[in-house]
Design a protein around this nucleic acid. Structure first.
Lengths: 340, 340
DNA sequence: CAAATTTACGAAATCGGTTTCGTGTTGACA
DNA sequence: TGTCAACACGAAACCGATTTCGTAAATTTG
């Protein structure tokens, strides 16, 4: 096992002091040409790399951004990571990715560990369980410690920090409005339980569109999925009623719905129009392909990390939290009919 | 801006030495009960957390594992990450995720940066470009520096380190054999260019199965996709010939193929059987759902990180690289017919 | 030629911890 | 009452770098 080469070993080997070595490697004018050449040649030959831990400790910055996500095997979140990494690496940062697995305890624990100096800042999307029991003390502590924080997608107002969200209300509205415009009247909504606020917001948009068109909101057309049970079975209940359209707040719900519709012999989009959320591969490759709300995860990730780096590198700035709202687009495909 | 609280501040505030504080916080028997209580209460009150950089520097270990992937928005790779993270976090490690974007230069750069002490070891799946130009010096340097390394999925024999791979030959064989068994004769293969070795291996399995059944390999039935051009257009050429089955080395190729088959009015699986690779969401939710080779990414990730941690924590061990081969399964779904 | 300035380098502090070793005080025991 | 162990704590080295400051020798200047 080769011992790693440090400034100290170089110094000893060459009979100079560590300060001289350090300066020589930075091409300081303080060091004479001969000595400099000698040191640089030596360092180069032995492939010397400064220990980054030592530098981080001294500079009090790690150039690492912590990212905590509820899950990873998920098109939207992996797209966000891609966006984060793109900008981060361009600006000389690395990312440390952790997962809460939608679990409150793991989120608290991860936050605690990462806030001990190993990262310069954090980008987080809150776990469902945390949203459910509304305990955000771990975030407050983070802010107390003055650690830059950016929340995205699943955010809560009480936490005073920068945020990046999609225009969920607008998205729900856009989707529903489109369905109505094309002649749909009985529009089912497949959503998440109320504590997941993105679901709630999308639902608000849905209701807003209905109200605007004087369609009474039919409670029985709205289904809140319990993720712990079989999803398909739950959705099937909605199909017991007469519906001519369906808006699902994510891709999986949409795909399941489509499958059920097909099994029931319904023709898509003639008998029923379907709109999903998250522009993932399922929507793109299923047949018929599914019209969806594109969330622009890549953009969200980029924006989030830009906000964060700004905070990190410019802490003097007075703290007035920013909130960036990314507008979402309706991506028309084959699962929706057009009235024209 | 609150100043962070360190051992030094505690010591000063309480009129003791830093050594005393350090020991008191570790409940050392050397420190008297009163002093201990006082210090612990103080530290607790001010929510003291030891700076991890300082510890890492002293202990010469970071408890961080670097992971370098060719891409992230990809079912297989995100599943692997999930597996890595699961075991890592259970064993007290964190993961630092970086991407090469299939790019040689970025891979070299990332490897260089991560090998300066910021991680205890690395898990890597090699970029396509690197495989293409066969320049692995950056990996050799890593080994020279005695940094534990585990390669997975996209590996090369020349690099002497632990590896985790799927049984690609066996998988290709299994899929092809299954098609033959069920009466298919003209089996197309949609694969990657030859430098991507997993593609090559799967192709070997394909050819082996054909030979075993005395079917002559028809060069015109094999298509190497050029990822820089439109995938669908390329696949369409294969359909100009008469085929009754198709084996694609990934999900995207399979989904595209299915779409083309449908557009040509072929019925699946009666007119043509299709088998894909990677058991992702597309295969599961498309209709008909696609029979695929399940790669068990989660298991691969777990195995990789287990190998790595073993190396990290037990460096004395003589270096005899291990290679774990994960056997893949054929997951039967609707896109393949059965002869029965 | 003496004084002032440059040049070229080293000593030591610092970042925030841990750990070894030493030492003053106490109490027990012969 | 002298000796020795146990106790409780502090000084200082260390991890691997950077950086400020000091200084001897060489060079320039008056």
């Amino acid at each position: 096992m080769k011992k790693k080469i440090t400034i100290k070993t170089i110094a000893k080997e060459l009979g100079v002091s560590t300060s001289t070595v350090s300066k020589a490697l930075k091409d300081s004018h303080e060091i004479g040409k001969e000595t400099k050449d000698k040191i640089q040649a030596f360092a180069n030959y032995y492939n010397y790399k400064p220990n980054s831990l030592a530098l981080q400790l001294r500079n009090k910055k790690t150039k690492v951004i912590g990212v905590i996500l509820p899950k990873i095997v998920h098109h939207f979140f992996s797209t966000v990571i891609k966006g984060i990494e793109a900008v981060a690496s361009e600006k000389g940062y690395h990312i440390m990715v952790c997962f809460s697995n939608e679990n409150y305890k793991k989120e608290v624990e991860t936050l605690r560990v990462l806030s001990n100096g190993s990262v310069d800042g954090l980008i987080v999307s809150i776990a469902n369980e945390t949203l459910e029991n509304k305990d955000f003390n771990h975030f407050f502590e983070l802010l107390d410690d003055d650690i830059p924080l950016v929340l995205f997608d699943r955010v809560v107002d009480d936490i005073s920090c920068d945020k990046v969200v999609v225009d969920d209300v607008g998205a729900g509205y856009k989707a529903t409005k489109y369905l109505i415009k094309n002649g749909c009247k009985k529009i089912a909504l497949i959503t998440t339980p109320n504590h997941v606020n993105v679901g709630t917001l999308r639902r608000l948009g849905y209701e807003k569109a209905l109200i605007e068109s004087y369609i009474k909101t039919d409670r029985s057309l709205i289904l809140e999925i319990n993720e712990k049970e079989n999803i398909k079975n739950q959705i099937e209940k909605v199909f017991e009623q007469e519906i001519d359209a369906l808006f699902a707040v994510n891709e999986i719900y949409a795909a399941n719905s489509m499958r059920i519709a097909k099994e029931k012999g319904m023709h898509i989009p003639n008998d029923i129009s379907i709109i999903g959320f998250t522009d993932g591969l399922i929507s793109e490759y299923s047949s018929p392909s599914i019209t969806t709300i594109a969330q622009h995860g890549f953009t969200m990730g980029k924006q989030a990390v830009e906000l964060l780096i700004e905070r990190i590198e410019n802490k003097a700035d007075f703290f007035t939290p920013k909130k960036i709202v990314i507008s979402s687009d309706l991506k028309l495909r084959e699962s929706t009919k057009t009235s024209s």
